[in-house]
Design a protein around this nucleic acid. Sequence first.
DNA 1: TAGATTGTTAATCGATTAACAATC
DNA 2: TAGATTGTTAATCGATTAACAATC
Lengths: 210, 210
Amino acid sequence: MGSAKISKALLKRLPVYLNHLKSLPGENRNISATAIARALGLGHVQVRKDLAKISGEGRCRTGRSRDQLIQDIEKYLDFTSRTTSIIVGAGPFGQALLDYSRFENLGLNIVACFDLDPISKQSDSGKPIYSIGRLEFFCKYYDVHIGIIAVPAEDAQAVCNNLVSCGIHAIWNFAPVHLKVPDGVIIRSENLAVSVASLRLQMRANEGTE
Amino acid sequence: MGSAKISKALLKRLPVYLNHLKSLPGENRNISATAIARALGLGHVQVRKDLAKISGEGRCRTGRSRDQLIQDIEKYLDFTSRTTSIIVGAGPFGQALLDYSRFENLGLNIVACFDLDPISKQSDSGKPIYSIGRLEFFCKYYDVHIGIIAVPAEDAQAVCNNLVSCGIHAIWNFAPVHLKVPDGVIIRSENLAVSVASLRLQMRANEGTE
DNA sequence: TAGATTGTTAATCGATTAACAATC
DNA sequence: TAGATTGTTAATCGATTAACAATC
């Protein structure tokens, strides 16, 4: 399928590069790894190596084409195709995700939300919110590939099991629990606690320095 | 100040251990590194090393005290003290964060939200939403230490500058942009694009295997 | 004693950085 | 040519894993 394996570390940087490149003004311009590195606070050698891995050869003196880079990164990250997804949990957080329009640029097509007890029938942007009972039928009928979990921690494992039994093999989990899934099911958990902790620890460390 | 430096990798695992330990039933029980490793799908040697770094010595045959471990992790991550914080951006996402009650357990005390044009004066849970013009006074009066950015990407840098000039030295950014800040300001950015990309790439990789 | 647990020391792996050579 | 850029190869750093010894 082309595209050799890239490291996890690089995978984390690619979206950062992409955002930066897209935010640059002007058409058809060239940009050097050095300039990107400076803008994003990274090492220039690292940026150069990263870009070499996912794009063709650059040219001395001129750098790389901005447009080409954007195209290559998007192709690599597969942001151009779409994956049909649903959310379980229509609380404030679930609904915020449901209506977050930027996901479309990342290939994530969130088509509906499910809740144990839907208060409203649709979100602010007009996406449908169904009762959880309709999950199985919906998933099979619409060929859903990603399930997003936005329910309280105590319900997350049950929802996860439900999603798996509905034939969903990829789960994006926002509840603060470690979910157990059968082999072959892919899981990705967000953990805001890590961010809060690292931010606060760094603050505490800096206090001593000042 | 105790607590030697721990690695970034360990910092990411500590909240996972903490969640798991808290979810265990029963009082005053002991638990072995092996059991934790099995439950969380990690290597037992790694768990043992991790725990040794942040806690005292374990006992052969009996393992470690669950309660002691919880205490040590919370102490290490400093989840027991509180940091006064505010959010800028009262959109669906900002409000979801504002009302997310779990942050209190992580030492994050979000006291108010600010918006360019507040539609409501308070959130669902009753936290105040002010006009952005009141930001500076509020920050100084209430000694705010963390600013959370939940505005669209195009406004994020301006909001960030505003926060810094209000004396806030730690920023938690949810907008998909790289923010530039003066030396001494700590920044932590969430990037959902990384998660979406890695989930979808893994799916694509698995397709070939099946 | 045997076995479940601990901890430690050395080997491996992965990623970053540094030093260099090549090109327009 | 000089300098800005590229790429490559080797050195360093950090984290994980494996092998072993110690203890209750």
